[in-house]
Design a protein around this nucleic acid. Sequence first.
DNA 1: AATAATAGTTAGTTAGATAAAACTATTTAT
DNA 2: ATAAATAGTTTTATCTAACTAACTATTATT
Lengths: 152, 152
Amino acid sequence: MNQELELVETIDKLSGFIETLQTQLLSGDLKGYTLRQLYYIELINKHENISVSELAKMLDVKKSTISIAINQLIKRNIVTKNQSIIDKRFYFLQLTPQGKDIMKIHMKVHNDAIKQILKILNQKEVEYFIKTVNKITHPNKKRALNKYRQIT
Amino acid sequence: MNQELELVETIDKLSGFIETLQTQLLSGDLKGYTLRQLYYIELINKHENISVSELAKMLDVKKSTISIAINQLIKRNIVTKNQSIIDKRFYFLQLTPQGKDIMKIHMKVHNDAIKQILKILNQKEVEYFIKTVNKITHPNKKRALNKYRQIT
DNA sequence: AATAATAGTTAGTTAGATAAAACTATTTAT
DNA sequence: ATAAATAGTTTTATCTAACTAACTATTATT
């Protein structure tokens, strides 16, 4: 079999693998959330005190979209919104303790998956794998912010 | 940096990479179609003369869902439906020439992506990469049929 | 021949994600 | 001080993808 065809299949397998991770993520303790919600939570965790419009820019969607999504999370006690004292038009977003718990579970699912991989691969293989993926993904330096969208 | 953390990032990069492929797929000549539609087209291409209920089983969704989706594709002249002579309850699905064109474009986008990768990696790297991915993905022998769903 | 099961359709509904446009409140610029 | 810009909200509407349930047509079973 030629290498090109094999690579097509490999990429296909990778898609499937990543999709499996996603399915795992959405079952178990995070069943009640959508991918999109988990992604919002992740972004707010990463960029504490981010604003609605910054989120909108990051994700390249309208403010209204974010506003609605965030207010849902606020209703569910996952996010809080604090008005800026300096400029009262701004609201800073933060995770509640419950939001942080969700984040922890999310990371645990990821880490568990990684541990599975580390069981299968040896040191050298992991090294090469990381190097190769870096080589492949490096050209797209700007890591897509919409990573929680659908995938091929 | 410890290897576990690096792997987490690597998987993240891979997600982004695959998502980029997907975005590429849905722009350009295939702009007018959804991922789900392209997946139906792919399945019908692969399993010529498949029936609506077989598709439904494959994808683990209700027949009505498939029925509606397929009839949309028929309206758009991408798929044809031929009643079985032996058992008139069954209809065999096939791609029209237009449907086959879509499939060709779809595959071309994939192949172009692969060519990009082959430019970046050398022979050995490709070999190792394929091997490693096989190792990682092998445990999940049943390749998810829902691969066109959302991904982590 | 009557009843079960199967394939596919149709109608109606729901959920999620998005957008446009009109709006309020606030700050900045002229 | 007035006008313009900005942050965020709300309303209305759209699209996709899925579901349930009732339906028709056809075939298989008893």
